[in-house]
Design a binder for these strands. Structure first.
Lengths: 181, 181
DNA sequence: CACGTACCATACCCGACGGTATGGTCCCCG
DNA sequence: CGGGGACCATACCGTCGGGTATGGTACGTG
């Protein structure tokens, strides 16, 4: 097809795709081989074992998430209110949301995933705090509001939209408005 | 020890205990047998197979959760503001929270768990809405505030406390205050 | 052109786990 | 007191998935 030979990133990318749909439980060596049109001999050439592979997955998610959050940091610094909206609207992105969800589920039973999630959460939360501070709120008020916004974002990613006529984007604006007044 | 012979509820109870610590992934027949001091012959006498057992687990959680939420409903009806606090403080209960978290994780890959979670969520959310309505907010305002409170509660159960000097209970009061003004 | 290395196929082993068949023990009831 | 059902032990099977050993092919390099 595209590339005849595979690279390490190809394997990790395939794993992340699976995680976004079926969670970490769907990541099996044999399944990866099938989807990549290859056998296990290939896998064990690129990676020592499954554990090392999972290390690489968590690490790559951490890096990718790091770059993503740093972009949000810049957005918050330049325009706090718009930056806040953008940060939270990231929770609404389906594909991104599903991957993050899979990571959170995985983090319940795996320390690597927990560490990755924790560092990403810290970045996001700090960005939210400085966003509120940029709007004039003092340290304490910013802290509380950032927590609410952050928890609500995670909760939304967990539960999904509530009700029939719910329009997530609009509700989000209402939430941000309510917290920035 | 206590009871020489086991009942269906003993098995389900043991499974829920395991779920609260290790999630649904820790629920293995052999492990249950070990903890109950019994062999697989016993399990397959009480239950047709693992699938039927998981049915029973989801059903029992649903029932227990139903009774729990109905108590919250009463609390909200009698004293809206205190009822709201109590409802959200339920998210802070460690043991309860860990079980609910395990159910949510499980619901990502299982329809029974998803249905159970969904019905429980609907109950909780409706209670929150009527709580805000009881405080004088109109339908729309109550809906938005209930969503924020609900999402934030779920998110808190997902992420856990943020920061070092964070005192969850105090933050909760601040959140409720902020939403009820 | 020989040769080493990167990349992969094939074949096999092993443990964990769900599931089944069958026999045993205790207790209640007629 | 004898029989039947509730409850459990033992032994065994099949499958799935991780892991390993080894051989094969293509490609670059001296």
């Amino acid at each position: 097809m595209t590339t005849q030979r595979l690279s390490v990133d190809d394997w990790i990318g395939a794993a992340l795709d699976i995680m976004a749909t079926d969670g970490i439980g769907g990541v099996k060596i044999q399944r990866l081989c099938d989807e990549l049109g290859v056998t296990k001999g290939s896998f064990y050439w690129h990676f020592k074992d499954l554990d090392a592979f999972l290390d690489a997955i968590a690490e790559r998610w951490r890096d990718g998430e790091g770059r993503f959050r740093s972009r949000l940091d810049d957005a918050v610094r330049s325009d706090p209110k718009r930056g806040l909206s953008n940060t939270v609207s990231a929770f609404l992105d389906r594909r991104l949301g599903r991957l993050e969800r899979a990571m959170r589920d995985w983090s319940r039973t795996d320390d690597r995933a927990r560490a990755a999630i924790k560092s990403a959460d810290k970045r996001t939360f700090d960005a939210l705090v400085s966003g509120f501070e940029g709007l004039g709120f003092d340290r304490g008020e910013s802290d509380v509001r950032a927590k609410i916004l952050f928890y609500a974002g995670v909760g939304f990613g967990d539960v999904g939209p509530i009700g029939d006529r719910s329009e997530p984007a609009r509700q989000l604006e209402t939430l941000v408005d309510l917290l920035t007044r």
